[in-house]
Design a protein around this nucleic acid. Structure first.
Lengths: 242, 242
DNA sequence: GGCTCGGCTCGTACAGTGTGCGATTCCACT
DNA sequence: AGTGGAATCGCACACTGTACGAGCCGAGCC
């Protein structure tokens, strides 16, 4: 009857002959703007200006702003290196996860969008397809296949999103790296007065490289997830039933 | 010198004597509005109307909308049942994770906010403090403590956020549960034409209860994470060095 | 050539946003 | 009663997404 979602992906894009404005151009320009100026900076008027066209001209090629963002997000999905089907699954999964994190850190605006709407673009679907195959080859079957890859994806998304948030919050105060650390520490101390354990604990980070410690946290978590999947395989929790 | 963040939490709230408008009232009303009408529906004018006051009166008690959202988010944090310090860590962690998921599903607007800004409110900090203690008692030490709880948190956030997104997307098309499943399936099929494996796979879900399968996915992932942490403990990856 | 027609662009307009500012009200205390 | 600060509010500004209709431009037909 009526299409339940009328997503960008169900409709076909406008012909885009030799026009001055094409969907691809629009999406590319939007991504540039998003990368350099952030999510809040993307307005149709600014995008139009960047493209040297009227703001509302964009609406010929794209139904609305949301749809444009969906397209941009799928483009980001496309930047993630798909794990090779033939490599050992632990390796494949690890490569994928690191790549996804790197891509999201390169396009900070994408993380929140990626989580806040279903991803049905071709790149997203291709990614899921590949992940599925990797998981199946690893030994998962039935619904456990989905559980496996979605666990992995959830971890990457869930760890990268706050990471980006912290970067943005700290980055907006222009200070040196060490100043930045002190700032973090002082704020933490302030918010934490009632939690001496926590406060004492964060003294650990006083002389740490913040980026390195984030990478370490990511590796730790990733290893956990992978080992956890391994446990499922070893125990035979992988078959269709569960 | 200059406060690097001037967060809500560093400033103290307005006295809030017997005024008709108090910070607490405002936050409560905001949460009600958010719960019933969603994130986009919260505007200062609407909130003012709900409170029977001028929109800009709110700004006496709250610096800006972002700050109001921070307060609301911390309130949500407060709804999460903290794991008891004495219970076995696997149980404690599991209880916490399930509670956090439940709370986020009850306040769908909170998930994206929670990920997109640093959480320094008292409830958030208290939660981290408690999680930290649980992890330490489990046997983690040094930075591994943080790695452990942040892995757990990342998983819960990362799995719940898309779950909410799907709910919202499907919920906006008013259809019965079974219709809803068919819709999902048909869209998936459409987006998936080039990926026969994937398409075939999703036939599995044709007669599944979608909520139940999400819960199952969550349990699966949570078990993975916990088992992964267990592996770290067993292998002695927990000490301060790494 | 001129004419028409459809694809495409754009200016204008509308309803709505967050919030700075100055005026106004209200209450506690002298 | 008067005064001073706390609290509220209306208005205004700049900005948002996008509906709408008027126009441009190039291709096919007479």
């Amino acid at each position: 009857m009526n299409q339940p979602f009328s997503s960008v992906w169900t409709r076909e894009p406008r012909p885009a002959r030799s026009a001055t404005l094409s969907r691809a151009q629009i999406v590319r320009a939007a991504i540039e703007l998003l990368d350099t100026e952030g999510l809040d900076a993307l307005s149709m008027r600014r995008l139009g200006a960047k493209l040297g066209s009227g703001a509302t001209s964009i609406y010929w090629h794209v139904a609305n702003k949301d749809e444009l963002l969906e397209l941009a997000v799928d483009e980001v999905y496309g930047g993630i290196t798909l794990p090779d089907e033939d490599t050992a699954w632990r390796e494949a999964v690890s490569v994928f996860a690191r790549s996804m994190r790197a891509v999201l850190l390169d396009h900070p605006w994408a993380a929140v969008l990626l989580g806040s709407r279903p991803s049905l673009g071709p790149n997203a679907v291709a990614l899921v397809d590949r992940l599925m195959k990797v998981c199946r080859r690893a030994g998962f079957a039935g619904m456990a296949v989905d559980h496996a890859w979605s666990t992995l994806l959830a971890f990457v998304l869930g760890v990268t999103t706050p990471e980006i948030a912290w970067r943005a919050a700290l980055g907006s105060t222009r200070v040196s790296d060490t100043e930045l650390m002190k700032a973090t520490h002082s704020v933490a101390e302030d918010a934490v007065r009632d939690h001496p354990d926590l406060a004492a604990h964060y003294a650990l980070y006083k002389d740490m490289d913040i980026e390195a410690s984030r990478a370490a946290a990511f590796d730790f978590g990733l290893t956990c997830v992978i080992d956890g999947l391994q446990v499922r395989l070893d125990r035979g929790d992988a078959p269709p039933s569960g």
